[in-house]
Write a protein that binds this DNA or RNA. Structure first.
Lengths: 307, 307
DNA sequence: CTGTTAGCGCTTTCAA
DNA sequence: TTGAAAGCGCTAACAG
């Protein structure tokens, strides 16, 4: 049945015919047990409703499929507590795991890492962990956005934060601190944001009250909600307040006004994650870790600061 | 180890301690083989990059997780030819399958259905197939949109088609025919559209040339691209041309102008799909098939027809 | 070249 | 109450 039969073709045909007649269908399960591999990998994200993670999943799944691998998905619902159990459970069902932006504390992740191997990490670097890691330079990306706003004359900015457990939020914060050191006359207010467009919408009033002339949102989802909330409050964007996002999700270019953002190649991350994973599974040396640079995408949600 | 041990607690503890020491971790695979169930289901869509399918996946995965089930995803890349093999392969890896908007011909789907059971169908009804089916009344939805445009004075419409293999595209076409019979003075041009925002964008010139005062797009993705393409061509929306979408993806409300659309409860579909599936797996009688009615969501991309 | 067998790691049944 | 054994359906190594 497996194609590499060396006997008489007629016999093979007869066997195949009988198999069809008996409605025989091989058990992938038993095959996996005997072979010791399932040809499936897990992909875990904090929020499957986020287009950025969806884009990675879509490209990871397509890419892995070319090598006969399927992907098992799980959403940790932004819960750092449940994450370790979820991750261990799903890992045991397949051959390997891609952890995307895990929210659990470093210590737990470090403790788990060996058990999880083969493991590929996205958006979470940790020198203690021996696993390929793909990430985005959020620190530099947010600085580029801040510098863009600065060049437009903005001196009072607001940063709408992401989840406190998000490492990439920390990196943005770090980038902002650097920027403040470079441009001491700039003031940046930290405002609590969230993770969804609704959160961004709800933050609009706080942004207006802060008096900032420009708001940097944690990501595009937040920025899109903020944009809308600001408009509803009668605040003109970008005339009165400029807004930036982060990610460049497919819809960022279609908002009103189109969103200035830092563009992240999510599809590329999915492809590269699979390449690293394939190497790991084959016990090859995976390619080097990469830190992708976001690209400034200037659209119409940012403009010169009001007088 | 399985919690229902009847002996001395001290012994159980000692066993557990040894297990931990030996880094014992149960093999889900072997357990599945012995038990004859994997606690995983497959979810197959034509395009994982479509937010409508992503929303279903996200809710299906969350809902199934509550019952200890994981989901294996696959994207058929809109290919009706590869679909049957893909579907059979992934089905054999797990306990059941949810087929979302399959593109393969009816005959093939009917032939496959028995092999695939337990099977839940989304967006594809077929009386020959004995499987729970959840769908959207696209026919009525598009008619509601057309009627909305008609009430605004539009008499020359254009319909931007979806993939030829999409049954839901056919249903929309059917609804439009009904509408034409009801309102004989209305003209509806059929224009080839596609499946992505890029396709919608590319169709903008064709829509303008058609002379229609309103365009109904197959879905929101197409509509958003069309909106943008029209704007780039200097066509004012909705002043000169009204545009409608279908689905009400999360971003439809944030486009410029916000998109009038037929709202489809994708999350609800995911939840209901799991409920049907759970009943099937438990050999219970699944709840009745449902045909959800889209809800007209009037936003600012539609307005009175020009003079 | 063909047919037999052990074993993957679990669950369940049956015997001690 | 505890231990031993059969079997889930496949693969791979081994004799015949």
């Amino acid at each position: 049945m497996n194609g590499r039969f060396l006997g008489e073709p007629a016999i093979a045909d007869r066997v195949r015919a009988s198999a069809a007649e008996l409605q025989y269908s091989p058990s992938h399960l038993a095959r996996s047990l005997a072979l010791g591999q399932t040809s499936a990998i897990a992909f875990v994200v904090p929020d499957l409703a986020n287009p950025a993670f969806q884009a990675m999943l879509s490209s990871l799944s397509k890419t892995a499929a070319k090598d006969g691998y399927r992907v098992l998905v799980a959403d940790s619902a932004e819960s750092p507590e449940d994450e370790p159990l979820l991750v261990e459970e799903i890992r045991r069902r397949c051959d390997a795991i891609v952890l995307c932006a895990p929210r659990m504390p470093d210590a737990q992740l470090e403790a788990l890492a060996a058990d999880l191997a083969p493991l590929v990490l996205i958006n979470r670097r940790n020198p203690e962990i021996h696993a390929p890691s793909l990430s985005i330079d959020y620190r530099s990306g947010i600085r580029t956005l801040a510098r863009h706003l600065h060049s437009l004359g903005h001196r009072h900015l607001a940063y709408l934060e992401g989840p406190a457990t998000s490492r990439s939020n920390e990196h943005r914060l770090r980038g902002l601190e650097e920027f403040e050191r470079e441009e001491p006359e700039v003031r940046i207010d930290r405002l609590s944001g969230g993770v969804s467009s609704e959160d961004g919408h709800a933050a609009a009033a706080r942004v207006r009250e802060s008096g900032a002339t420009a708001a940097l949102a944690f990501n595009d989802l937040l920025a899109i909600g903020l944009l809308n909330g600001l408009l509803e409050l009668g605040v003109r964007v970008p005339k009165e307040v400029s807004v930036t996002g982060f990610d460049d999700i497919p819809f960022a270019r279609y908002t009103s006004p189109p969103l200035t953002t830092a563009s992240v190649p999510h599809e590329e991350l999915g492809v590269q994650a699979w390449h690293r994973m394939r190497a790991l599974i084959a016990r090859d040396e995976p390619a080097e870790d990469i830190v992708l640079q976001p690209r400034l995408e200037v659209r119409r949600s940012t403009a010169a600061a009001p007088r």
